[in-house]
Amino acid sequence: MAAGKKTRVEKTQAGPLSPPEYRAIPIQFSPERAASHFLYVKEHRVRPGTGSAWPPGRTLFVLNVPPYCPEERLAQLFSDCCGPVQTVKLHPKPDLSQPPPEPLTATASELFCPKPVPGFQVAYLVFKKPASMQKAMALPGPLIISTESHPVKTGIEKWIADYTASLGDPEALRVEVDKFMEEYDKKVAQEDARAEAEEGVPDEEGWVKVTRKGRRPGLPRSEAANLRVLEKEKRKKARKELLNFYAWQHRETKMEHLAQLRKKFEEDKQRIALMRAQRKFRPY
């Protein structure tokens, strides 16, 4: 291209740009706000020979779902315009081979499950009838998320609601913990019973499994043994201590040494006096 030559890019299509095979549907947060956000939708299809738990012909794949649009509101938006919706599942990223999440079982917990990080997500929206999905692909928009009949909380109200939802019920937490501990105790009892049944029984190669419970209990220590252990611990502790590390320790060591010398001097004086008293004069 020559320097200084200008080109003109003409708009060849009406409406917003969208990825191939997707259709853009504008949505607005409320009627008072003119800013629009776009959802990109297409029919959910998988490659031939690939299994999918999402029903074909009735599943709509939705990209760019904002964090302020939950599953309930997304289902309400499409059911009002297209027809009844069977299920809506949000995912942080598309995964065509992943089946829909199953409901919580007895071992799962709603209190200890990590919550996903809020952000833009993808959705798998399943209609009850195939004609509803065709209507969804032809929606002109815009769809209004927050209305007077279905308001969506924002700002401080949303923060307060999220904080309140993050605080679990103490009674539900106690029931959950008690249930977990009961299952844990039952599991430990089953493992102990299985270990006792296998103890002393040789396997196919003739090896005998030795468990902790199969060991002989240790004999109680005698008083002399306890004294030896205490004396050993005392010597070990004395070796670890730093002697004369501080100035006051050095002074105390000197004072103790002088006190021992004085005590020994007094004992020697008493011994000499006793020896003099017992000595007798024998000239012959």
Results as ranks from 00 to 15, higher is better:
Thr87Gln: 06
Met137Val: 01
Leu63Met: 13
Phe38Lys: 03
Val122Arg: 00
Ala273Lys: 10
Pro142His: 03
Ile160Cys: 07
Ala273Gly: 05
Ala238Thr: 08
Cys113Met: 13
Pro26Met: 06
Gly141Ser: 01
Lys263Asn: 14
Leu261Cys: 10
Lys186His: 13
Leu39Thr: 01
Gln28Ser: 12
Trp159Arg: 15
Lys263Gln: 15
Ser18Lys: 01
His150Asp: 10
Phe38Gly: 05
Val201Thr: 09
Arg276Ser: 00
Lys153Ile: 08
Ser149Lys: 15
Glu176Cys: 05
Arg282Leu: 14
Glu205Leu: 12
Phe120Thr: 12
His44Glu: 08
Ala224Val: 12
Pro202Gly: 02
Tyr284Ser: 14
Ile272Glu: 13
Leu17Thr: 14
Phe112Lys: 01
Val152Asp: 05
Lys115Met: 09
Ala238Arg: 11
Leu125Met: 02
Ser109Trp: 04
Met255Asn: 13
Asp185Gly: 09
Asp169Val: 02
His37Trp: 09
Thr7Met: 11
Ser52Ile: 06
Asp162Gln: 12
Glu256Ser: 12
Lys5Ser: 11
Pro26Arg: 03
Lys11His: 10
Phe281Leu: 11
Leu96Pro: 05
Lys213Met: 12
Pro56Trp: 02
Ala247Tyr: 01
Lys179Ser: 11
Phe61Glu: 05
Ala238Gly: 00
Leu125His: 07
Pro170Gln: 10
Ala131Trp: 03
Ala53Thr: 09
Thr7Ala: 14
Arg194Leu: 12
Leu77Val: 10
Lys128Pro: 06
Gln13Trp: 10
Pro116Trp: 01
